[in-house]
């Protein structure tokens, strides 16, 4: 039975506890022993993303200390996973601890597909769903083939969703355009950020999505904030919530 340490990003911990719980339930249902190292706080991405490496470095070092003992670390966020895997070099002194954590940290869907070997989940979710492919998961982690690249099409997330009975993935005119969240960008460039977000929502709505999902609560929080203000006919679920609910 794989032992999995949950890496719950700070904003998921504070704002979206249900996403963390869904992640844990799903992993347990798939036979994992799930632990939550309570010493964890934040991976340091908010500071690093804004260029403040000196402020991010202590958080990154702390993360490595907390998670180094675990064989598998699983996170319901592509962006935070990519922070650890792709952006810790230079923040954390090189060494076996860093290398181990970079290797052991997975985004939830890629852990299901690549480590647990899940190709199809038994479950039912009779809804029209729009998949928002968050950029860092898509382009930095390689959860799928971005539309710019000339590579065989693939998407670990879409694969898991499409396997659910009754779930229809709607087809978007722009399958992987950024939603405009972008961390501090969301407030620093509020106007463009919101225009990007509204354009994404409109694409999902015209495609007939009832629910918009994705691997990253940060993007969904931005999109949901816009949609609720404008009373758009669409709701939001993290992919962990859909997979957990469907397989309950």
């Amino acid at each position: 039975m794989p032992r999995v340490a949950l890496f719950i990003p700070c904003y998921v911990d504070q704002l979206y506890p249900a996403v963390g719980l869904a992640t844990a339930r799903l992993l347990e249902r798939l036979g994992c022993e799930v632990v939550f190292p309570e010493e964890q706080t934040c991976c340091g991405q908010p500071m690093a993303n804004a260029g403040f490496d000196a402020d991010a470095a202590p958080l990154a070092r702390r993360f490595v200390e907390v998670f180094a003992p675990y064989e598998h670390v699983v996170c319901p966020s592509g962006s935070c996973t990519s922070m650890v895997r792709n952006h810790y070099d230079g923040l954390v002194p090189a060494g076996p601890g860093l290398e181990r954590v970079k290797r052991s940290t997975y985004e939830l869907c890629e852990f299901l597909v690549d480590v647990l070997g899940v190709t199809r989940l038994e479950g039912r979710y009779p809804h029209k769903v729009g998949l928002h492919q968050s950029c860092h998961g898509l382009r930095e982690l390689g959860l799928g083939t971005p539309s710019e690249r000339v590579l065989p099409p693939s998407s670990k997330v879409a694969g898991l969703l499409a396997g659910l009975e009754g779930l229809e993935l709607v087809s978007l005119t722009r399958p992987d355009e950024c939603c405009g969240f972008g961390g501090t960008f969301a407030v620093a460039e509020e106007a463009v950020s919101c225009l990007m977000g509204r354009d994404r929502i409109a694409d999902h709505v015209q495609a007939g999505a009832e629910i918009i999902t994705g691997t990253d609560v940060s993007c969904l929080m931005h999109l949901e904030g816009l949609a609720r203000r404008r009373r758009e006919p669409v709701t939001f679920r993290h992919v962990a919530e859909i997979l957990a609910e469907a397989t309950a």
Binding site: N49, G51, C135, H136, R139, E140, P146, E148, R149, E177, C178, G180, F181, G182, G183, T184, F185, A188, E189, S193, M196
Partner: peptide
Amino acid sequence: PMASTLCGSCDA
């Protein structure tokens, strides 16, 4: 430098 979401589409 803030005029980007770092979405990475440019790299691709």
